[in-house]
Write a protein that binds this DNA or RNA. Sequence first.
DNA 1: AAGTAATCCTGATCGC
DNA 2: TGCGATCAGGATTACT
Length: 295
Amino acid sequence: MPELPEVEVVRAGLEPAVTGATVRRVEVVEERSLRRHDGPSEDFVARLTGTRLAAPHRRGKFLWVPLADSDEVLAIHLGMSGQVLLRSPDHPRERLTRIVLDLDSPLGGDGRPGPLRVDFVDQRIFGSMAIAGLVPAADHPEQRIPSHVAHIARDPLDPLFDDRRFLDRLRRKQTTIKRALLDQTLVSGIGNIYADEALWAARIHYDQPTATLSRPRATTLLAEVRLVLGKALAEGGTSFDAQYVNVNGASGYFSHSLNAYGQQGLPCPRCGTPIVRETFMNRGSHFCPRCQRIR
DNA sequence: AAGTAATCCTGATCGC
DNA sequence: TGCGATCAGGATTACT
């Protein structure tokens, strides 16, 4: 379940390998991985083949690689199970490889300029690649972002994230706090794991109505979101070494330092009360019934 | 209009 | 041992 930190690790891992690289060949193994692409796979292949790539960007869980001298990008979403693997051309393919890009890269298979393979691997096919156009960002029109990312809010690690606007919108919403944290149009990059972790850290129950959450508690929550994302990013970043790296989301998880997610039955690290798991929004919510109460 | 449920997906795991 | 049922959940869609 790649969330912001995992996707950022992928972006950072891709950067030296794809920036300035040229796409030599594109192979679509699984058409359904193009579900977000507006057109047939032949169109995807044609528009990508021969192009030069620029430095990758990210907003929340969305990742994109601009096509140089063009108004288009290669947009990537990892979904639930997507991975981007950098491989030497002769490296065996993973079984669940969905899309393959052959590049001439400044950082090729042997660490010097040369051929490099980018494998998009995805078990559940919730992830995708697509060619998308660029549109001005709503809040800063001088910034351009892919059209299908335009409705996504900035993430809390974005320097242009507007704390006050977030807190105001949060308070006005008629919903509960975990729904709000997972609402990518309100704040992006947070998924189920880091939502549970941030709520645990801020001692807030997942079903607390946002309208009744005091400003100081909401402010604390936002700070905890930043802390938990930043911590995961630091750990994910260290677990990743340069080339043939598994620029994979899953490897970046800091599972050893989870306090709530997946910890049902284990003692709360703060008070010792067993962590509870409840089903909410068709997913698991993990919390400490003593530390995290609706109030 | 806005909030929420349904939907897409398949490998791994579990129970019988 | 084999097989069907269950589970995981991000983002989009389709409702209410």
